[in-house]
Amino acid sequence: MKIKRLAAALTIALLAGCAPAATAAPGAPPPGRPAPAAAYAVGVRTVTVEPTSARPLPVTVWYPTQGGAVAAGRFPVVLYSHGLHSLPELHAGLTARWAAAGFVVAAPAYPRTRRGAPRFDRADVRHQPADGWRVIRHLVRLDARPGDPLAGHLDVARVAAAGHSAGGFTTAGMFTSGRSGRLRAGIVIAGGGMAGGLAGPAAPLLFVHGTADRIVPVAVGRAAYHRTTGPAAFLRLLGQGHGEYLTPGLPGFDQVLATTTDFLRWTLYGDPDAGRRLPGDAHFPGVTAYESRPAR
């Protein structure tokens, strides 16, 4: 009963934050459109952000399609950040499914932490939140670029950040004071807080973590969860390590996919049914445990 009450309170708090205020500030995003009722086919392309700069960013983009073209309508955006020695395509089991659910997912290959980086440097993670914002600004321009297939299809006023491991820390680092109101929600998978992150305006955050993670202990994720001031939830993968639950077909993947998709539909589309489904979709005896709390 306690979890149900917390989930109900979290739903009320989040939907209040998503609803248009009677005295909305100039430039405030309009109400979101209804969440898709059926899955889309998925297209994929690669764009490069600032190719001639010191930090060019190849970005893999998954997007909903119909009849071989970009699906009609505007779709909220999810920025997905990979971990150390990884690549965007290694996360396609999750990101492509989010696109099928009605999101445009953009995943940069970070210049110093991706697999095969010429000058690998784990400390470069501290620069990745700024890289994430470069990708978002690029998508804003892309949405207005005549002739681009994605032009007019990106709801760049409704963006979530998500990421695994170092990408989870990158995600937390994007939630700074003074950030753009485009960034509405975050999903931190096997990660934790970053200096200067988890600050500023309260935003709903979902944490996903294996309880036996030896690379980033679950206590690190729990500490970040307890620092948040907005609505927050925590999905634990019982007895699991650093990310095997992100592989389709392995234990916990179905619950991670359902929970993260519910969370994105809830926060970016304002879908109350998705918010109500969260506790049930997250729970599988012996595999997962879920808790949530409203904004403080």
Rank of each mutant, 00 (worst) to 15 (best):
M1F: 08
I3S: 03
K4N: 02
C18A: 15
A21T: 12
T23G: 06
A25I: 04
P30K: 07
P34F: 15
Y40W: 07
V44Q: 15
T48F: 06
P56H: 04
P64Q: 07
G67R: 12
G67H: 07
G68T: 12
A71F: 01
V77E: 02
S86T: 05
S86N: 13
P88Y: 11
L90C: 00
G102P: 08
V105S: 00
A117Q: 14
F120P: 14
D131G: 01
V135I: 13
I136S: 04
R141C: 11
R141Q: 15
R145H: 12
G147Q: 10
P149F: 03
H153A: 13
A166E: 13
T170P: 00
G173N: 08
T176W: 01
S177Y: 00
S180I: 06
R184W: 05
A185D: 10
G186W: 14
M194P: 02
G197L: 14
L198K: 07
G200T: 10
L205I: 14
L206F: 13
H209W: 11
A212K: 04
P217G: 06
R222K: 13
R222F: 01
A232L: 03
L237Q: 10
P251D: 09
Q255D: 11
V256Y: 02
A258P: 03
T261A: 06
D271W: 02
D281L: 05
A282R: 08
G286Q: 05
V287T: 15
E291D: 14
R293I: 02
P294F: 08
P294D: 04
